[in-house]
Amino acid sequence: MKESNDIAIKVDHVYKSFNIYYDRANTLKERMLFWARNKRREKREILKDINLEIKKGETVALIGVNGSGKSTLLKLMTQIIFPNQGTIETKGKLTSLLELGAGFHPDFSGRENIYFNSSIFGLTKKEIDKRLDQIIEFSELQDFIDNPVSTYSSGMYMRLAFSVAINVDAEILLIDEILSVGDQHFQEKCFAKMRELKAQGKTMVFVTHSMESVRNLCDRAVWLYDGQVRMDGNTDEVVNEYLRVTT
């Protein structure tokens, strides 16, 4: 990889905290009557001073126990939420698979939903037309593609959503705990596709609890603990240490 010096994602001194309200006053009336109530809130720091540089073409896993801030970090990279302090820069077209099938419309057919969903990822009609067959083929839903999505089983739903997301042609893929899509056969297909994307030099960031898939796919692992980077490096080293400490 000749461009391996290029940084795809740069996380620079990022802090993120959420306000936790005990009993939230939402309306004007409530706010005026119970103004003291809103003060009963707690600022919870989710991420503290995160610094991370992910190079182009790298496949990185974010690991850590629940509540360690992995998903928050991924959401920050996607620009769904924004840091309180620090900056995050990404270079290149970015797709996130935080939750499959977000934006699916149950009353519309699978085919129409491919168009809706791809357009949320920023594709034009022409680009979607070009990919349509490929997406349908990957999902293996040829016989059902013109039925409304509400008639799909959850497995079929996931397959369609994954097929759309994986065919968007992004340079950076952010994937949150979704490698458990469909049956054994489809999972293997997904892994094969990910490896193919990896070979094409795409940058990928995973959040997952499956250490097996981390070992399988990633060349670098970042262990988050309590909102901070505890360990960052070679997959095997980090995973072994993580397993040693947590189990």
Binding site: I80, S96, L98, E99, G103, I120
Partner: peptide, 9 residues
């Protein structure tokens, strides 16, 4: 709300 929380656009 649900697509805003899950997808960037």
């Amino acid at each position: 709300a649900d697509i805003i929380k899950k997808v960037y656009f």
